[in-house]
């Protein structure tokens, strides 16, 4: 029983990180029809931002070292969001309505960003020391839940909560939803779709930055950190249904739990294959994903 619970916890933990990565993708893809292959690099940017902050705190404010991580979360969000905005303004802007071209161009950006990180921080992985208060775990009924994973879980929940408050309760967020649902109509009603697009891209990148920040708790980081997550995150977007954030959340958690359980009962290699086969089978049954709606429109 405790083994199953533990696996369930690990699965939710993995799923929550994947979810944070996939949410940003789901926003940019659902709204703008842009496939952002450089999304993984925003994870990397978030992670390296945390690393830099850690270095700064270690050297300048060793007394306040315990709090650096709390500061790193918003800073990682802002840095990733800013670079995302820059990318949108300079490159992505020209690629709207050309999804397969956007895929190639953003792949190019991803190569450039990776190489830049390699030049600045070096090719080997660097470790980020977690603050003292995140070490250890919560013991409950003979099981230990590491504080780090619990913290990440809480962080993801909070991010999703903020995202939904933003989308449903603020004017800017409502405009974004309107553009996602019907771009032409929103444009006719006076919504500046260009502005909304840049905001969406920045928020999506920022979420990836938070994901990168939380990944530093789980292991060392390197220039290719993002590539490990990007394909899984794309599968979640496809599974969840394009532009359906609730579907994305469901798909993220399900994929996390499912792959953890399969991996537990077989091996990491076989698990990858089984999970992929199940996704393909699932798409046979529901080609538009979990939250896909049957529509009469052709495309």
């Amino acid at each position: 029983m405790s083994v199953i619970l533990m696996q369930l916890f690990n699965g939710i933990s993995l799923g929550s990180i994947l979810l944070l990565v996939a949410l940003g993708l789901a926003i940019t893809f659902g709204q703008m029809n842009i496939i952002n292959m450089a999304h993984g690099e925003f994870i990397m940017i978030g992670a390296y931002t945390t690393y830099v902050l850690q270095q700064v705190f270690q050297q300048q404010f060793p007394d306040a070292f315990g709090t650096y991580f709390l500061l790193a979360i918003p800073v990682a969000f802002l840095v990733a969001a800013f670079i995302g905005l820059l990318m949108e303004k300079t490159i992505v802007k020209f690629l709207y309505e050309r999804p397969s071209d956007s895929l190639l161009a953003t792949w190019g950006v991803s190569l450039i960003l990776q190489q830049t990180a390699r030049s600045i921080f070096g090719a080997p992985n660097v470790a980020v020391a977690a603050p003292e208060w995140l070490n250890g775990g919560l013991s409950l009924a003979g099981m230990t839940f590491p504080y780090k994973r619990l913290f990440i879980l809480g962080l993801v929940l909070l991010s999703v909560l903020f995202l939904f408050i933003y989308l449903y309760r603020t004017n800017s967020g409502r405009r974004m939803k309107a553009v996602t649902m019907n771009r032409e109509m929103a444009s006719c009603l006076g919504v500046s779709t260009r502005k909304v697009d840049s905001t969406a891209f920045a928020i999506g990148s920022g979420l990836a930055g938070i994901a990168g920040c939380s990944l530093t708790l789980l292991g060392s980081i390197g220039p290719t950190l993002g590539t490990a997550y990007i394909v899984d995150a794309f599968m979640i977007v496809v599974l969840g249904g394009v532009g359906k954030l609730k579907g994305t959340i469901l798909a993220g958690v399900m994929l996390g739990i499912f792959s953890t359980f399969v991996e537990f009962s077989t091996s990491a290699t076989i698990a990858k294959m089984i999970v992929f086969a199940v996704i393909i089978l699932f798409l046979q049954w529901k080609p538009t994903g979990f939250a896909g709606v049957r529509v009469r429109a052709l495309d």
Partner: peptide
């Protein structure tokens, strides 16, 4: 690597 990335961008754009 940077050149390759730039090549992607130039060709697409």
């Amino acid at each position: 690597t940077i050149f390759l990335g730039a090549l992607f961008l130039v060709v697409v754009l």
